[in-house]
Amino acid sequence: MSLEFLAYCAFFLTVALTYAVIVLGLNVQWGQTGLFNVGVAGFVAVGAYVSALLTSPAVEGRFGGLDLPILVGWLGAFVAAGLLSALIGWMTIRLRADYLAISTFGIAVTVQLAVLNLEDVTGGPFGISLIPRPFGDLAGRSLAFSLANLALLVAVVFGLYLMLQHLAKSPWGRALRAIREDEMAAEALGKSPRRFRIEAFALGGAIMGLGGAAQAHFIGFIAPENYLPMLTFQVWAMLIVGGSGNNRGAILGALLVWALWAASSALVEALAPAGEQARAASLQTVIIGVALCAILLFRPQGLLPEPGGARRRLPFLRRWRGTPAATTGSDRT
């Protein structure tokens, strides 16, 4: 086994772990709280750009470039994405559930547009380069550099995992679960479902922002096309495959789907004729889209089911005597 291969493995794992951070954030929103975010890419982009602006060296004619330490950038990413999430949550969480989905979809479109158009801040279509990379002084020795970054990401993911596990068992996490299982009962116990949901949505969004920052710093370069709806789609596939509600499932899903994605991309590159690469890549997306639907249909719990096995019991549409219908007046007199 050559050193290059080892370095490549470390590189691959590091990228996968940056996705794991994002998936953990989505798991707080969806897995723990049942909030559907269709704009993951937008929150990741906010984190990436905020951190890049705080830490990259100054560039003439562009705002930002404050050259601050990486840690400050990551904190900024966490806070900025969290604030944006809190705002969206405040606006829509009191309304019907799919309004949140539509709003997050809208925010992702708008963020994409903003990073593309605000050239004076974001560099427009050219993006931002020279984002400082952790352990940048090791850059000459690729194996050491890769391993150091891998260690850093392992530490970040592990730390997040411990924090989220602890949080799930805390009174806050229990209240969140209670609200998800039975909103009326939780409300009767004096929990404000809306406040808890906004908090969970903000925390999840903040973690996504952190993931975006980690990714930006590891690659060293960001551009608007990194944050297309495809990213949202990949992150969702990771969570659904791994098992929503389960933090270990979220991490496993990130590794697995990223491996599948990378492998199938390599396959496309190797097999498709030069002129047909784009077409073959779209077929790859078709298959992943169909697979996502198939998992929702046939194994909605994913690879690792939610601990405790508590499935969602919201009887939105039911079937009996052949016709689907919403329940009305469930009084039992």
């Binding site: 005597r321 009305t328 009084d331 039992r332 007199t333």
Partner: peptide, 16 residues
């Protein structure tokens, strides 16, 4: 809670 409503709803096809 005796099941009066459920009884007639079941007849009408509103409860399985």
């Amino acid at each position: 809670g005796a099941g009066k409503s459920t009884f007639v709803k079941a007849i009408a096809g509103l409860v399985p």
